[in-house]
Structure formats: C-alpha cells, structure tokens
Write a protein that binds this DNA or RNA. Structure first.
Lengths: 221, 221
DNA sequence: CGTATCATCGAACACTTGTTCGAAATGTTT
DNA sequence: AAACATTTCGAACAAGTGTTCGATGATACG
C-alpha cells in the first residue's frame, strides 16, 4: 500500500506555505502583509483564507510542518544506532542538511519562534522541547561515558543549537563550503570541543577575569 | 580632565533607549508601537519624537550605541596582548559579559539586525563587519600557528558567533551558570574544538553521508 | 443535464500604525 | 521681569493592517 497522491488542496496549501516562508524569511513575519502573500501566490486576499484561518495559523503551519519533518527524519536516521556520539553526529548532519535545503522555512522556525502566541506557540514549543531533550540526553550520556565533568550540559546543548541555527544569518551556498563541509566542520568543532583535549587547557589563556566584575558600560549606569 | 557630566537631554535619551530596548526585546521591534514606548516612559507620543526622528532611527540608536561599546571595550581589553588565543579568549569573555549584562540591547542587536534598512543598516553593518573581521583574523592567525588546516575559518567564526549570540534564546541568569561559568564553558568548547584533538577523529563517527545526498522531505518535492 | 461540494473573489469594516505641527509649558540667561 | 531656548503635548492625518461575508465560478458526480 503506497502513500496517497496529494490532493489539489494539499498541493496548493504547500505552495502557499512555501511561498509565504520565502517572504517571511526575506522581510520578516510582521513586516509581511497577507496582501504581499496574495501578490506572490497570484491569489486574492480573501482567497488565501480558505487555506488558513489567521496569519498566526499560517506561521504555525510553516513552523509545525517544517519542524515535524526535521525531528522525524532525525529519529529514523538514528533509530538503530546506539553509540551516543554517532547518534549526535547524525543528528547534527540531519539538522544542517535539512536547514540548508529548506533555509526559508528553517529561518522562519528559528527567527520567528516568538512571533506566534497562545496555543499554537505551545504546540510548537512542545516539539522543540522534545528535540532539545534528545540532544541534552545524548550529551549527558556522552559525558558520563567519557568522564567529562567540567562542561555544563545545558550550555553545551544550546551552544550546539546556536552554531547550527545561526547559519541563516551568514551561510551562502554559492560561496561557502557545501553541506558536507559545513556538517564536517561544525561536528568537528563541537564534538572535539565537547569531548575536550587533555593537551589543551583553555583555562590557561585568560585567567585574569577581573574585568568580568565590572558592571560594564554606560547602559547599567 | 574628567568626562563631562551627561546633560539632562543625554540622560533622558538613554532612559528612552533602555526602556525601548526592553520592550523591543520582549515583543519584537515590529510589534512594538511608539505608543507602547510612550506608555512605558510616561511620555506623550509626540514628545518622544524630540529624541529621535523616526522609529527606524530609534532602533539604530540602540544598536549603534550598544555595538560601539562592545567593540570599544573589546579593543581596550586586548590592546596589549599579542597571543592570538589569549586575545580570542578575552574577546569571548567580553562579548558574553556584555551580552549577559545588557541582554535587552544585545537581543535587539542580534535579533533585529534586519529590521533596519537603508543608510542606518549600512552604518551598523560596517561596524559588524569590522568585528567579524577581527575574529576571522584571530582564527586565521591561530590556525597558522597551530598548523590547523582542516577547519574553514568562516564556518568557525560564525559558529563562535552563533554560540555567543544564541544565548538570548535560552540563557536565564537565575537558573543557569553565571557569566564566569558561561564564558569558561563556551571558551573551552570552541577553543579546544577549533584547535582540535589528535586523539579524536570526529570524521570516524559518521562516515556514511549518503543521506546528505537525498534532497530531504516534502518541501522540495 | 442538474446539483452539491469545493474554491475563489471583490468590497467593505474596524482598527492600529508612524508621523506631523502649532501651541503650550518649562527652564535658563539677561 | 523679559526674552530666549529647550522640552512637552493634544489632536489630527493618511496609509496600511487582518479579517469577514455574501456572491460567483469551477469541478465532480449522480
């Protein structure tokens, strides 16, 4: 039994989502009007409302669809792998691969995370939390296996997410390394950074932290 | 000769900037109305326009003021240090310290980078580019000294910025490690990750990259 | 054919937005 | 006190916003 062919409705909905994501990615969610989307999709203003019932929901559909797929793909990919480090590497590769190939949607997911509110916000956030927990557990397991005690798991996890999710701010497939190279580099930096290197004591480099005491600048008066 | 005492005008302007930054950080630039700011500052709508001549410029003033200070502080801090690794460590510490102590402004700087346009955008971006170049040069120098050839400098630089700038999405000073710990962790992860560890070959962990060939999911059809 | 379901649209509504402008209040200097 | 500059404000404007609704066209099926 094979998958149903997508209906006319589904096809057009997806087209609307993809076009909207592109505009949201370029101009930002709040600066994009439904009229902008109507123009780009060659539909009428009110005709769009047949496919979503509010601008909020439109954003949700993009985020949810996109995020669900990343997580599902990831789960399949690491399903029959046990070694936490390998699982982590695969997660990173999947995340970056999906990100680069769906830059618009992922930018909207990352950048407009707080542009949504209420129940829809909570729904997306529930999935996000699962994903974050997955990473934190992997790091925790790895840390135990390798007797790493000097790294905060939360800081490490979000550092990794920072590295990965920041790419929408700079990555240009036309002049940067390809996805392969991107994944290799980030995996290498994070993993060997997290696992640590006995020959390097990062601490040595800047032991005088007295400047951290200063409240820093005029903003704080 | 000591610094001039800030005038009434400067004091109030700073108060306006700081209050605006707090609201922008919470609700986002585009969802914040000048009326919101008027309410929060106990000023009239039109009264605010005595301190800036457009909403755009208000955003610019926040970003410029904030960014200028980070870079200046950084330059002073590393002025008489030659070792690139030490310079890098100090830069990271300064960046994170400033970020945590001025979370609102730095969130506005990071998150609303594209909410500004035209000349004002270019002005902020010029400073940003200098800062990025500083980091890239430091990494380049370090890479040469330590004979690191398998890491892309651009990827490494923006990975570092990703780690540092992402914190506005998760860092909570009330339940996370303090700035000291934050800086230690991130410096350790990035630095020993960038310098690498001969005993670890990250490459080994996920040599099968065939899934990176697949165009990935429904979005691309 | 006809008829029921799906898909689309134009026109309008109620509301919020950034910004302006002349006048009034406040403060400072002669 | 008078004259000046600095600072604040109320009221209004023009433009753009998300959303609704009844009507119309298209499509599928009996």
């Amino acid at each position: 039994m094979r998958a149903e062919a997508p209906s006319r409705y589904d096809q057009k909905l997806l087209h609307v989502l993809k076009t909207s994501a592109a505009i949201f990615a370029e101009k930002g969610y709040h600066s994009t009007s439904i009229r902008d989307i109507a123009r780009a999709t060659d539909m009428s203003l009110s005709g769009l409302y047949y496919y979503f019932k509010s601008k909020d929901e439109l954003l949700f559909l993009i985020q949810d669809y996109c995020f669900t797929t990343v997580v599902e793909d990831c789960r399949k990919l690491i399903a029959d792998v046990r070694d936490p480090i390998t699982r982590l590497s695969l997660l990173i590769e999947n995340h970056l691969n999906y990100f680069v190939h769906n830059m618009n949607e992922m930018k909207v997911l990352s950048h407009e995370a707080n542009s949504i509110s209420g129940d829809l916000f909570r729904k997306v956030n529930a999935k996000k939390r699962q994903y974050v927990d997955l990473v934190m557990n992997l790091l925790d397991e790895t840390a135990r296996e390798h007797r790493i005690r000097d790294v905060d798991i939360r800081v490490a996890s979000f550092s990794l997410f920072g590295m990965m999710n920041w790419i929408y701010n700079w990555y240009d497939p036309r002049k940067d390394v390809d996805v392969r190279g991107l994944a290799q580099n980030i995996t290498r930096i994070f993993l060997s950074g997290f696992l640590g290197d006995k020959s390097i004591e990062a601490e040595r480099t800047a032991s005088d932290r007295s400047h951290l005491e200063r409240p820093a600048t005029i903003w704080q008066q």
